[in-house]
């Protein structure tokens, strides 16, 4: 009983820390953003950002739309590469994301993208729309981890009057800007900054069509079977008991978990568990799977290998093994955070 009391005291302290006093009516009006730097007593001007509550956006995949846009990504050499995309959605859950041009910097004209890049888009488009493009997560996290401001002066994006919202990361993971239609909240642009304030990734719409012709569009479909992972009940379906990180960056929580069934497309790997952690905007993937000993013909007992890490187009990734368990951590966060998360999965 003493143990139970202690557990509950600790749990209650944790819970109180995260508790979000949401109004019973569900309205967010009472959840005013913290804004220690710009609230209370500061004279408002026509150009000064104003502290606001958390905005609500309409995401393009939720409306019928044809969106031409450019993605900027900082590569290993510090250069912002550009990719042209066409995004299509029917507002009923179907999406299509095509890559239509690539430029290695900010100056050169767009050229036809390589076959490899087109294949990557074909394989990843569902995940890119869901995870690469920022989406606001739990309100508790958004309040705890960010201060929110909006610019008083609208900006034009693809001919649409938009409001620029800035989420300043209190944990210093990098601020994020959003450009949303002033009338509808449709997200037409975003910029993710790294901790130093440099642009990591940016999207800007160049044309918007809210009455697209969607006849004949080959909508994206899952390439492998997936299902939500609900915890111990799904251990049997997963085929093993997953390892958990003992460390997460401050302010992060588990947003979702899903199980990806292996098959011929991923030889030598068992079913994969992917957990998505978020601070409300920034994401961390922690994935794991068992390597098939039959496939590689090796013994894995007690195997601990070096952890390989690299920067893949602005995303830091680490992968390594504990015995037959292959682990992966991927995020826009710093490599130091990646290493800390990865190391925390290892046993003492």
């Amino acid at each position: 009983m003493r143990t139970l009391s202690l557990l509950s005291l600790v749990a209650s302290s944790l819970f109180l820390l995260a508790c979000d006093p949401v109004d019973q009516g569900g309205a967010s009006s009472e959840n005013l953003a913290l804004s220690s730097g710009s609230s209370g007593g500061q004279a408002l001007s026509g150009t000064s950002p104003q502290a606001i509550e958390i905005p609500e956006f309409e995401y393009p995949e939720n409306v019928a739309i044809e969106l031409e846009r450019v993605i900027h990504v900082r590569n290993l050499n510090g250069i912002l590469e550009r990719t042209q995309e066409t995004f299509l959605a029917d507002g009923l859950g179907n999406i299509r994301l095509n890559v239509t041009g690539f430029s290695p910097d900010q100056a050169q004209a767009f050229a036809t993208p390589s076959t490899m890049l087109q294949m990557n888009y074909l394989n990843q488009m569902r995940f890119m729309v869901k995870y690469r493009d920022p989406h606001l997560g739990a309100q508790t996290a958004l309040l705890h981890n960010f201060t929110w401001t909006e610019d008083a002066v609208p900006v034009q994006v693809a001919g649409v009057n938009c409001i620029r919202y800035t989420a300043k990361s209190l944990q210093r993971y990098g601020d994020v800007e959003f450009l949303a239609d002033a009338q509808t909240g449709l997200l037409l642009g975003w910029t993710q900054f790294d901790a130093s304030g440099a642009i990591s990734m940016k999207m800007e719409a160049t044309s918007v069509n809210l009455s697209p012709s969607l006849a004949g569009v080959a909508w994206s479909v899952p390439l492998v079977a997936e299902q939500a992972f609900s915890g111990p009940n799904d251990f049997a379906a997963l085929g093993y008991e997953p390892m958990e990180p003992a460390y997460l960056p401050a302010g992060f929580y588990q947003e979702e978990a899903w199980l990806r069934f292996s098959g011929p497309s991923i030889p030598g790997i068992s079913n994969m568990l992917v957990k998505v952690y978020s601070d409300g905007i920034h994401l961390v993937f922690v994935a794991q799977a068992n390597e098939a000993t039959q496939h590689l013909g090796l013994q894995f007992a007690n195997r601990v290998t070096d952890v390989f890490e690299s920067d893949l187009g602005g995303i830091r990734v680490a992968e390594g093994s504990i015995g037959e368990r292959r682990l992966y951590v991927a995020s826009l966060l710093s490599m130091e955070e990646i290493e800390t998360i990865f190391g925390s999965i290892y046993p003492h």
């Binding site: 590469e81 890119m128 993937f285 187009g313 995303i315 992968e319 991927a330």
Partner: peptide, 24 residues
Amino acid sequence: PQEMSSISRGLAGSLGGFMVEDDA
């Protein structure tokens, strides 16, 4: 980046990270 596995590349790609060589 080339020494990372296809799974690592896939995870990075889901977050928008493609190697420069993906456009080679």
